[in-house]
Each structure stands twice: as C-alpha cells, then as structure tokens.
C-alpha cells in the first residue's frame, strides 16, 4: 500500500508543484490571451492533483482528506520531479519547462491508460485529453519562438539548455516505479523516455533549435531530495493550514 501511495504521490506532486509555478505567473503573461491559457493549464493540473490526493486519502483510511495530503507533508515527503520546481525566469523558461513536462505527461498517461489499477486508468484517460492540448500549445510555442526573432531564439535555446539537466528526474526509476511496473499498475519509464526523447528532438528540430547534449544531469525529486526552491514554494503554499490548523476554509 505504501509503495502504491508513493506512486500516486509522484503523479499528484508533479501536477501540484507545477500548478503552483503557473499560478505565480497569473497576471504576468506577455499578453492577456496567454495569461488565460496559462491559467487553464494550471487549473487542469490542480484538478489532476486534487483527484489523486483524494484517492490517496481514501486508500490510507486514516480519516484524512485530500487537502491534508496536499498541504501537510514535510518537504522531503514531496516526490515531484525537480524540474517542475524551477522558477519562472522568463516566458522561454516557462514554456521550456512546460514543454518538457507536457511531453512527459503525454507519454506517461498514454501508457498509464493500460494500468491494471482502475483509478489510475481512469485518471490517465481524463488527463490525457487535457495534456494533449497542453502539449500542442507548448510545442507550438517552442517552434514559434525558435523560428522567431533572434532574441526569442536565443532565450528559448538558453531555457531549453538550462532546464535539460533536470529532465532525467522524470525517468529515473524510484522504488515505487519498479514495484508498480512489476504489478502492472505502473508504466515502463524506458518506453516513456524513448517516446519523450523522440518528441523533444522532433519539436526542437522544427524549431531550428539545438538538442542539448550536456551529460551533467540532476536526478532529484522522486526520493524527496529537492532544489532549494521547494522550501519556499511549500512555505507559501502551506502558510494558512500551518498557521490555523483548526480552521476549515
């Protein structure tokens, strides 16, 4: 049970922490239409996280609710990938982070549709619809920026390069990944990685951008070791439940 819960949390935490970064960006996009699109993605991700946390609370059977799981853990109990914690440096970073994550989500949920776990299968189907749209949007942006002005091209290449080193965090198998794959609940991350790599290469090619070659890779997240950013994210997110533990909002 504990391993299964951890597997669930890997899915939910990625969505939650990325939605937090996108929420920070609200009212800060380059134009209004894009602000609304950014919010759409954030809303989808919160919805995904919420559904999974509620299921975790139910599985646990300790009388907790989804919000308790979302809000009340210690930093090293969050198992999101380190990529989604990375800050909103500029629009290029936001889109590169989004593109890498959307491509991961797309192939991950595609595989997860075959899970023997009914809940995961259902959530995979639902998320896949949303993520298909997310991936289309972020791919198109990467291509447009790559083929755009010199400044756009440069900024986007910088972001693609800089965030590349955090992408293995999605694919390195945690103990939960290994166990759940064995039980036919989880997905084979090697398959997901190959598809992800191909998609990323294809989009970068269309964008006239270079595929990063750096071997310096950072693998944090899934085992609870994070970047310094996560502490601040949680401090902000958990502020009210921490300060008023008895309050219901």
């Amino acid at each position: 049970m504990e391993t299964k819960i951890k597997y669930y949390l890997q899915i939910a935490d990625n969505a939650l922490i990325l939605s937090h970064r996108l929420s920070e960006y609200c009212s800060r996009a380059p134009f209004l239409e894009e602000d609304l699109a950014n919010t759409n993605v954030a809303l989808d991700l919160i919805g995904l996280a919420e559904a999974v946390y509620e299921e975790v609370a139910r599985m646990e059977g300790k009388g907790r609710i989804g919000d308790n799981i979302a809000y009340l853990r210690k930093e090293n109990e969050y198992v999101n990938s380190i990529l989604v914690e990375q800050p909103n440096e500029d629009f290029a970073h936001i889109m590169a982070r989004q593109f890498y994550t959307d491509a991961f989500h797309f192939y991950f949920f595609t595989e997860l549709c075959n899970s023997k776990d009914e809940f995961l299968q259902a959530i995979a189907h639902k998320s896949l619809k949303e993520v298909t749209y997310h991936l289309r949007r972020s791919s198109e942006w990467i291509i447009r920026l790559g083929k755009g002005t010199e400044e756009a091209k440069q900024r986007t290449q910088t972001a693609i390069d800089k965030l590349w080193k955090y992408t293995p965090a999605f694919f390195i198998e945690s103990k939960a990944d290994v166990q759940m794959l064995k039980n036919e609940v989880g997905v084979d991350l090697h398959t997901v990685y190959n598809q992800w790599k191909q998609k990323v290469s294809e989009v970068l090619y269309l964008a006239h951008l270079k595929i990063p070659t750096s071997d310096f890779l950072i693998k944090g997240g899934k085992e609870g070791v994070h970047s310094e950013y996560l502490g601040y994210i949680l401090a902000e997110m958990q502020f009210l439940p921490n300060k008023y533990p008895d309050a219901v909002w």
Binding site: R28, P30, F31, E34, D90, F91, L145, T149, E151, A152
Partner: peptide, 8 residues
C-alpha cells in the same frame, strides 16, 4: 518583459 514574445 513580454515585449520580446509579442514581437517574435
């Protein structure tokens, strides 16, 4: 901050 995105 968004000017470069709009221009592009």
């Amino acid at each position: 901050d968004g000017a470069w995105v709009r221009e592009s």
